[in-house]
């Protein structure tokens, strides 16, 4: 199952990173968001670390919706979905493969968003930066697990990006709050409530939705029209 998942992930990454324009669109949208929000500061004013972290995560969330829509749209073009389903592996391999590809793409996008947030929103990097990065990685796992599950809703292209976002965003609230809080700490070195409980929360989210993905994915991804 793992090798099939890796085959799917590497195929998707090849399609999106070297040929397609899938990631470019998501990147531009995220960057635009960060830029537009930077306009909310007056000249000479600096945005608070929490605001900056919120904008970073907002950009990531929108980017993630586009990523998963593209990842699943790839399989609809020539009925390639049926090809995947015919492979002698559990269908969860598709979920895992899409998740791995989505995780990689999201990290690539965030590697652009993070410096953009620091530059446009006037942030500094505090000694807590490594905790911030760890939280980004940990939060991305949960976001991607849920994204790869719900992204499959667009199978048959009935559900659009807008629908995926209204279903997905509220569900992401716990990780987004954690990401924003710890992100603010990474910018400003100030987190009175401590990072442990936030990290614990994100880990619980990851575990819950990795489990939900494994159990529920076969229901949403199938050969029925």
């Amino acid at each position: 199952m793992l090798s099939a998942a890796l085959a799917i992930a590497s195929k998707d990454l090849r399609l999106l990173l070297s040929r397609g324009t899938g990631l470019v669109q998501a990147l531009l949208l995220g960057l635009l968001l960060i830029f537009v929000f930077s306009l909310s500061q007056r000249v000479g004013e600096v945005m608070g670390p929490q605001g900056a972290a919120a904008i970073f995560w907002l950009a990531s969330a929108f980017c993630q919706v586009l990523i998963f829509n593209t990842l699943f749209a790839i399989e609809e073009a020539n009925g390639a979905r049926f090809g995947l389903l015919l492979a002698p592996v559990p269908v969860q391999a598709v979920w895992l493969g899409k998740g791995i590809a989505g995780f990689t793409l999201l990290l690539c996008a965030q590697a652009v968003f993070l410096p953009a947030a620091i530059v446009f929103l006037g942030q500094t990097v505090s000694p807590l930066w490594h905790v911030g990065l760890a939280t980004v990685l940990l939060a991305d796992v949960g976001i991607v697990a849920l994204g790869a599950l719900l992204g499959a809703l667009s199978q048959g292209q009935a559900a659009r990006e807008s629908l995926l976002s209204i279903v997905l965003f509220p569900l992401l609230v716990p990780v987004l709050l954690a990401g924003i809080r710890v992100g603010a700490a990474a910018f400003a070195d100030d987190i009175p409530e401590g990072v442990e409980s936030w990290l614990g929360l994100v880990a619980a989210f990851d575990a819950l939705f990795l489990g939900a993905g494994i159990v529920l994915f076969p229901f949403v991804y199938g050969g029925e029209e």
């Binding site: 099939a4 085959a7 799917i8 195929k11 399609l15 020539n78 090809g83 492979a87």
Partner: peptide
Amino acid sequence: FIYPELTAFENLAFWARL
């Protein structure tokens, strides 16, 4: 079931790996 953005060879190679 073909991915138009991949070459013929890459399509086959993916299928074989899958």
